[in-house]
Nucleic acid binder design. Structure first.
Length: 467
RNA sequence: GGCGGUAUAGCCAAGUGGUAAGGCACGGGUCUGCAAAACCCUUAUUCCCCGGUUCGAAUCCGGGUACCGCCUCCA
């Protein structure tokens, strides 16, 4: 049946059908780089990375572009406060972004265009909008005239009249209509600026994405994604600009992820509950954070706090433990019993996983299937005789699902050093001679070093304790 | 005021007409030299409330309530 996805534009699930065969053009709005990213920024990074990887898993070739807003009011403000040059500050936080999202298992996009490197395209985009009568200059600023674009409001399903009520004109703005928005802003004395036909200034916020999408992916793309709050005004405005100029649909599918809350409250500076990824990964492993995020559907609101992370850690460990136990059993057991009724089990689970994920990237249900498989594998491990073939099918399937979601289903084994191996051997002898005091002493000693021993009918297995 | 989202066990979270997935935590049991891991049992007669439609609703309709978000360059 193929992939179904929820399209914000039509407010329903639709069959996913890219424009050209298996090629998918996907654009995700990236961060404004003036600080470390917080946990709310991490969600779109993670969920759309998941979407991308799942599409690839399903055989699509994804062209993935995500921008950096590396010049805007907030960056200028932050730079002033720190007494740092804008480009240096932006560069610093771009590096931090890659570091943080990389830890969370987010792959780099194929391209990460920056505003400052897209200036010629932005300027000609604006010029073309003025020429077509969709934008006007006012004293060095350029505004998009929302009234001139008939489709304005269709993404957020609001009428111009309703929007008008909430809109206002800030002091100093020279727009004709409160709903108009800046394409180009003239610079103040001493501010970082670029030359343009309207004098020196910098781009407005929304125009960069329109220019970048067109430059790097084309006039129409398949998927345009971002946080829910970007739907209005950011995406609405992007869409208006692009469709006014190109006279064709900007994106076929619009995807928006739900918000993250901290203890059921909005994360905001005034509440002082900002959680930076940079900080939280000092205390909780980034793999757990990714797993936690994917345990909820991407469009649902998601509450975040450390207890929830702790619980997610235990859940993930259940998977890792089973993988470890499967590996141990396959290694230690000389059994090659009949596969029997277990033979098809893993592949059936894999089919279920695909069915769930095909339904609007429901990673929550995908992970449930993984747990069902874990349960089945654990039951199989209770059998006296196990077949290597079945053990391998369980292991391979768990790994396949793990890699489709890019969650960490197995812990790194590392090498045991000689001292530890010697102690384990000594303990085997101690247990044989029923010297349990010594055996327990060794087990406790190793536990202090993060090595956990478990005795099974197939011998002693070990695993490293997770941080 | 306009637009939108969410309300399911102690906690998290699936489930859009067919009789409540899964995970975490808790309790009991099996296994074990003891543990650990695992398995088994137990844990929501019920899905925010009130009406309605239906043979049948957490799921559809009407009306409420609560919380959250957007309309303020905040993902």
């Amino acid at each position: 049946m193929g992939i179904m996805l929820y399209n914000t534009l039509t407010r329903q699930k639709e069959a996913f059908q890219p424009m050209s065969g298996s090629e998918v053009k996907m654009y995700v709005c990236g961060p404004t780089v003036y600080n470390y990213i917080h946990i709310g920024n991490a969600r779109p990074a993670i969920v759309f990375d998941m979407v991308r990887k799942y599409l690839e898993y399903r055989g699509y070739n994804v062209h993935y572009v995500s921008n950096f807003t590396d010049v805007d009011d907030k960056i200028i403000k932050a730079a002033n406060e720190l007494g740092e040059e804008v480009p240096r500050l932006a560069e610093r936080f771009i590096e931090a972004y890659f570091e943080d999202t990389g830890a969370l298992g987010v792959d780099k996009a194929d391209l990460h265009p920056r505003v400052t490197e897209t200036m010629p395209e932005i300027i000609s985009f604006i010029k073309a909008l003025i020429d077509k009568g969709y934008a006007y200059e006012a004293d060095g600023d350029v505004y998009f005239s929302t009234r001139s674009f008939s489709g304005y409001g269709k993404l957020s399903s609001q009428s111009i009249q309703d929007l008008q009520l909430g809109a206002r004109i800030e002091p100093g703005e020279k727009k004709k209509n409160a709903l108009d928005f800046a394409l180009w802003k003239s610079s103040k004395e001493g501010e970082i600026a670029w030359e343009s036909p309207w004098g020196s200034g910098r781009p407005g916020w929304h125009i960069e994405c329109s220019a970048m999408v067109k430059k790097y992916l084309g006039e129409t793309i398949d998927i345009h994604a971002g946080g829910q709050d970007l739907a209005f005004p950011h995406h609405e405005n992007e869409m208006a600009q692009s469709e006014a100029l190109n006279e064709q649909e900007m994106a076929r599918y619009w995807m928006h992820n739900g918000y993250i809350q901290i203890d059921n409250e909005k994360m905001s500076k005034s509440l002082g509950n900002f959680v930076l990824v940079h900080d939280i990964i000092q205390k909780h492993s980034p793999e757990v954070i990714r797993f936690f995020m994917l345990q909820a559907h991407y469009r649902s609101p998601l509450n975040f706090n450390e207890e929830l992370l702790e619980s997610a850690k235990n859940s993930l460990e259940r998977i890792q433990t089973t993988v470890n136990n499967l590996k141990h059993r396959r290694r230690e057991s000389a059994d090659f019993g009949e596969a029997g009724r277990w033979k098809e089990t893993a592949s059936k689970h894999l089919q279920r996983f695909i069915r769930e994920m095909d339904d609007d990237f429901n990673s929550a249900n995908g992970i449930t299937v993984l747990f069902d498989l874990i349960k089945t594998a654990n039951l199989y491990l209770e059998e006296k005789q196990t077949s290597k073939e079945v053990l391998t099918s369980f292991l391979d399937t768990i790994r396949e699902i793990g890699s489709a979601l890019d969650i960490k289903v197995e812990t790194s084994e590392g090498m045991l050093d000689e001292e530890i191996e010697a102690l384990m051997e000594e303990r085997v002898q101690a247990r044989k001679s029923r010297n349990f005091a010594r055996a327990d002493e060794i087990r406790d000693h190793l536990k202090e070093q993060g090595i956990i021993l478990e005795d099974t009918p197939q011998g002693t297995r070990w695993k490293r304790e997770q941080s």
